Amino acid sequence: MPQLRTERLSMVSWTQELVDAALDNPSRLEALLGATIAKGFPNDPVRRFVLPTTRVRLQHNPADGEWSGMIIHVEDNVVIGSMGFKSPPNENGLVEMGYDIVPSYRGQGYATEMARALVNWAQQQSSVHHLTAECLSDNWASIRVLEKLGMQRIEEHGTIIYWEFPIPEQD
């Protein structure tokens, strides 16, 4: 994805160098970005699951980095979270969105703001035909973000709610 920009935020796509720095050397990440890293970035699930998977994907195909990245609060010049799709579209054109915001920046509309930009970008990609997300049934903040985006609940299993965003057919 090109660097997405909103009124208050920008997104920098992952590269191999940025993933390595996020996992192994936060000072290096700050130097590469020219931005401060907020306390709590990356969070534990991103550190343990998302970034290692992204690292492997990027080793096989560096272009996969365009499908996700870090969120930078422009005014503060601080990395406040990450957002993107768990992988490029599969053979059916399906992408699954995920996001996280550090605790000190939550509740200010940042996830919704960047998620709208990300969904708009995805809708412009001819390879994307289905956009999904999932969240825990007690994660009221994520539920509200997904509702604001216009995503529709499609099912619920145990503690997980599954969502879908209707993407119109492209001519």
Results as ranks from 00 to 15, higher is better:
16 Q>K: 13
14 W>P: 01
129 H>Y: 06
48 R>E: 13
81 G>W: 02
93 G>E: 08
162 Y>L: 09
48 R>F: 03
35 A>L: 00
83 M>L: 14
144 R>I: 01
33 L>E: 06
7 E>S: 12
119 V>I: 12
60 H>Y: 10
74 V>G: 04
113 E>H: 08
32 L>C: 08
59 Q>C: 09
91 E>H: 11
117 A>L: 06
26 P>R: 07
120 N>V: 06
166 P>R: 11
91 E>T: 11
168 P>S: 15
83 M>T: 15
37 I>S: 02
125 Q>A: 08
136 L>F: 13
131 L>P: 02
110 Y>L: 10
27 S>F: 11
65 G>P: 02
45 P>D: 12
70 M>H: 06
157 H>V: 12
113 E>Y: 06
7 E>T: 13
18 L>Y: 00
45 P>S: 11
167 I>C: 11
112 T>R: 03
32 L>S: 07
137 S>V: 08
60 H>Q: 14
169 E>Y: 09
55 R>G: 07
56 V>E: 15
117 A>M: 02
132 T>R: 14
166 P>D: 13
22 A>I: 01
11 M>R: 10
25 N>L: 03
152 Q>S: 11
76 D>K: 13
158 G>L: 04
37 I>D: 00
121 W>G: 00
98 G>K: 01
165 F>V: 00
54 T>K: 13
38 A>E: 10
49 F>T: 04
91 E>Y: 09
148 K>Q: 10
30 E>I: 06
84 G>E: 01
73 H>F: 10
15 T>W: 09
143 I>E: 09
113 E>M: 03
79 V>Q: 03
147 E>N: 13
26 P>H: 02
106 R>Y: 00
170 Q>M: 11
86 K>N: 10
148 K>M: 01
8 R>G: 05
109 G>L: 01
87 S>Q: 14
43 N>R: 10
43 N>Y: 00
142 S>N: 02
35 A>D: 04
69 G>N: 04
150 G>S: 02
65 G>M: 09
86 K>G: 00
114 M>G: 00
28 R>S: 15
89 P>V: 04
94 L>Q: 14
23 L>E: 07
117 A>P: 07
48 R>D: 11
162 Y>T: 00
57 R>T: 09
5 R>D: 09
129 H>L: 09
2 P>G: 14
9 L>I: 03
144 R>C: 07
116 R>P: 02
3 Q>R: 15
99 Y>E: 06
169 E>K: 12
95 V>Y: 03
94 L>S: 13
151 M>F: 12
143 I>L: 08
86 K>P: 02
68 S>N: 14
114 M>K: 03
58 L>F: 08
119 V>S: 01
7 E>F: 04
154 I>C: 11
44 D>E: 15
56 V>A: 14
